[in-house]
Design a protein around this nucleic acid. Structure first.
Lengths: 177, 177
DNA sequence: TCAGTTGTTGAACGATCGTTCAGTATCCTC
DNA sequence: GAGGATACTGAACGATCGTTCAACAACTGA
């Protein structure tokens, strides 16, 4: 259902596509949901809720700042992989409607929380301070989010392997030391 | 013109939107271009050509593998920023039409060239070999491409600053040593 | 001056979109 | 087994989409 939105994009997916994917007729779909936009809102809420839940986990709120940051990077990657269609949908929202703009607002709030985590780690002297903190935040979680562009279930790597690679690359870099 | 595709997404942008943005009527637009898809094809070609051109630059074809890789990461980031609307459009293509699928094919070829650069740097012992090379390639250029999600002209950073930060983070990591 | 190219217009086209609705099954409950 | 909720259907709706076209203006070169 949400997979159709991902494959074709939300705008390019018709209610007929969704009906076909669920084995119903178009009008049967309207018996269960208010409309296309309500379907989008449900899917976006699921992604946002899962991401915010990561920020509330014990390892994200206690311990050294750099370890809290590492935990959120790892768990954020795992959530992205496990809820791939939902999070991908969230990452592709452009703000065309009220539902989309509400999701973008929640995403922005999430990004602010991430920026604070990065700033705390810098202030604690555990993360390099020679780069702009805002830039670091965006690139760090840009790396995490980029996984949605290529990851496919049943592929060569599971969620943990991807998350470990993201953490290893982000924190220690590509170069051989 | 291409800015409209970016702001709303290709599918959500009508020919009327494009006409309004160019100060023409809808039918006047059709005097200059064959149709909406031809407009997309033109924009996508511009992005793809600029990216492939980076691979042909002198510093991308000579020198130590790790330096060639670093050059492509830096220049790839700069091209993305300088041709932001065009590259963003390319990165959002989903393959709904023949034009989009052709662009995806060219992008895949580009990605293969990137993977070979990474593999060469690993073989030369200049890049860490404890991670899957394919995974490293995807995350590395996922970081580069993620810039398109937030960069806006006239913001706090210019293309060089962003490119330097991408290189610094990707190659040496976040952690303070 | 005139023929021809180029640029533009407004109206209309068929197609497809999201949505609605009256009507028909199917099921659960008493 | 009667009655009401629930699930579903096929057909149609108004709107919007990309595209076409006959008509008209403006400019060009001979």
């Amino acid at each position: 259902m949400v997979g159709e939105f991902i494959a074709r994009g939300y705008d390019a997916t018709s209610m007929e596509d969704i009906a076909r994917a669920t084995g119903m007729t178009k009008s049967a779909v309207y018996h269960h949901v208010a409309g296309k936009e309500a379907l989008l809102a449900l899917a976006l809420a699921r992604a946002v809720d899962a991401l915010f839940a990561v920020l509330e986990e014990a390892d994200a709120t206690t311990g050294a700042p750099v370890d809290r940051l590492e935990h959120v990077v790892r768990r954020g990657t795992q959530v992205l992989v496990e809820l791939l269609p939902y999070v991908s949908l969230l990452l592709r929202v452009r703000g065309n409607t009220a539902v989309e703009r509400a999701a973008l607002d929640r995403r922005r709030e999430f990004d602010h929380r991430l920026a604070r985590l990065v700033q705390d780690a810098i202030d604690a002297g555990q993360v390099r301070a020679d780069l702009d903190p805002g830039l670091v935040t965006r690139l760090l979680f840009g790396t995490v989010n980029s996984v949605n562009e290529w990851y496919r279930p049943g592929g060569a790597h599971d969620a943990d392997e991807v998350a470990d690679a993201v953490v290893a690359l982000s924190f220690d870099g590509l170069r051989r030391h």
